[in-house]
Design a binder for these strands. Structure first.
Length: 478
RNA sequence: GGUCCCAUCGUCUAGUGGUUAGGACACCGGCCUCUCACGUCGGUAACGCGGGUUCGACUCCCGCUGGGAUCACCA
């Protein structure tokens, strides 16, 4: 049997990095086994599902390079288009006495739940309607037609359900702990636990890979599989990812959606690598290409304990990918980030490449790179007053002037040519490199931190350099 | 509260009865150096507790403690 896994997000919000990790693992497992990976949209909750978040999910997965063999835009992979199948399955359960109508109202159930809690009993459904006699020809609920009841699954009360989990191992659940859950709501919409089972069966999912928050649902789902006459799939429940404070990841932790990282200048390779490495490992290796991930991935190497999201390590990984990026590619990728800041790029692609090369060991994200690039991209340089006070003093005016003249006379403003001019000026004034480089740096960049001074000048070009040098000399004179 | 899951440096982890408990991020220090970085060398830092099993437990078993998840007409 060929392996088939699925990722089944519900389009009710952004695609969360903790959530997408489950999708990634399902994807890697399928690819590793040369199986199929399905993207299914769990949109039975029509109130909360939005087109916008569907689009975000799809774009996020595409950006990450997690491609699906079946799924959107094919409507068959939307739960909202499969209601006939759910009705059919539910009706069958009803006919076979494996499900029953429940006439308890939401208010009554809520009251019972509170009562049970007060008496410290378990809050599950008490089975009030479970033993009502079967009504032949009973229809599924439909509020519009006045059929205001729900359908509950008649869960076995004896015995136990064993979950053999590929990650967590063996877990035993007493069936007496499982209450009769609603599989069809009174508005005629199937509930998650039911729709999921019908889908997983129909699509022949062999391995259900998901967050371990679903583990308590699993015995219930297994019972539904059995009632429907299907063989349950294998399960792999991944531990969850928490924020740095150990609490579940949420907006409180700042950026958590895939889009947020994309927009913050992270690379998909870095995010993928990071996500894979948390909760899974392959010896001491830290850097993995997507191909390596696919080649090495397996549930036996997945940890069982929850992980804490570490933004610093992600940043480090991103830095790694940034450093080793081919300059032409990096130049291309940084353009949208430059434009977003409203800069007009003062050069061609080759120029951008040169610029980016001087910056890539100093920035960890594309956004940071653009931050650093301000003095390259704009001539509106604000000189830091403290830096000016320290380095732009009267006795440096003459050397700066001489340097400006030397550079102005250059036919080719290359790093080595610039270096030669520096050496002449240094010799003439009896200065050490540091004594000249820092003032020049302040004059050209406005601050005391920048790439190597020859590189900066080579990228800036002679005219912009001379202009800034002269401006600095003028400011000293004033 | 019931049920289920989990437990090695601050964090991600390697480890599968005998190791100076290894790597990575972060942090600290040296070197490199025109600044900042990069790079490089080195350092601080962990087996939650208590019982067993065993010649020997980080490793196996039990208990405790501590975390987490879940108990909806949400997914």
């Amino acid at each position: 049997m060929t392996v088939c896994t699925r990722y089944a997000p519900s389009p009710t919000g952004s695609l969360h990095i903790g959530n997408v990790r489950s999708g990634l693992f399902a994807y890697l497992f399928a690819r590793h086994h040369r199986g199929r990976f399905i993207l299914r949209i769990d949109d039975t909750d029509r109130e909360r599902s939005t087109q916008e978040s569907l689009e975000e999910i799809i774009a996020s997965l595409q950006w990450l390079g997690i491609e699906w063999d079946a799924g959107p835009p094919d409507r068959r992979y939307f739960q909202s288009s499969r209601f006939d199948r759910y009705r059919e399955a539910a009706l069958r359960l009803l006919r076979e006495g494996k499900a029953y109508p429940c006439y308890c109202t939401a208010q009554e159930l809520e009251a019972k739940r509170r009562q049970a809690e007060r008496e410290r009993r378990k809050p599950g459904y008490d089975g009030t309607c479970r033993d009502k006699p079967y009504e032949a020809g009973l229809l599924l609920p439909d509020r519009n037609s006045g059929r205001n009841y729900t359908i509950r699954f008649r869960s076995p009360r004896e015995g136990q359900t064993v979950v053999e989990d590929l990650v967590k191992g063996h877990s035993v659940f007493q069936n007496s702990e499982l209450d009769d859950l609603i599989i069809f709501r009174s508005d005629g919409v199937p509930t998650y636990n039911f729709a999921t089972v019908v889908d997983d069966a129909d699509f022949e999912i062999t391995h259900v890979v998901r967050g371990d928050d679903h583990l308590p649902n699993t015995p219930r789902q297994i019972q539904i599989f059995l009632a429907l006459g299907y063989t349950p799939p294998a399960y792999a429940h991944l531990p969850m990812v928490a924020g740095p404070d150990g609490k579940p990841l949420s907006k409180r932790h700042g950026a958590t959606s895939v889009f947020a990282y994309r927009d913050a200048g992270y690379f998909p390779e870095a995010l993928l690598n990071y996500l894979a490495r948390m909760g899974w490992s392959h010896g001491d290796q830290e850097i993995f290409s997507k191909q390596e991930l696919i080649e090495y991935f397996g549930f036996e190497a997945c940890g069982k304990s929850p992980g804490i999201f570490n933004p610093e390590k992600l940043l480090w990984l991103n830095f790694h990918y940034l450093k080793q990026r081919p300059p032409a590619q990096l130049a291309r990728e940084v353009i949208p980030f430059i434009e977003k800041r409203g800069y007009k790029i003062p050069g061609d692609e080759k120029w951008l490449e040169k610029m980016v090369v001087t910056l890539r060991e100093r920035a960890k994200t594309l956004v940071e790179l653009v931050d650093f690039a301000h003095f390259y991209l704009s001539d509106d340089i604000k000189v830091d007053p403290k830096a000016a006070a320290k380095f732009l003093k009267p006795d440096i005016a003459e050397p700066l002037k001489a340097l400006a003249e030397g550079i102005a006379a250059l036919s080719d403003c290359s790093e080595s040519a610039v270096q030669a001019v520096f050496e002449q000026v240094l010799a003439r004034f009896g200065l050490k490199l540091g004594q000249l480089a820092q003032p020049v740096r302040v004059a050209l960049t406005g601050g005391t931190v920048s790439p190597g001074i020859y590189e900066v000048i080579a990228v800036l070009g002679a005219s912009r350099t001379v202009e800034r040098l002269n401006r600095a000399v003028a400011s000293i004179g004033a």
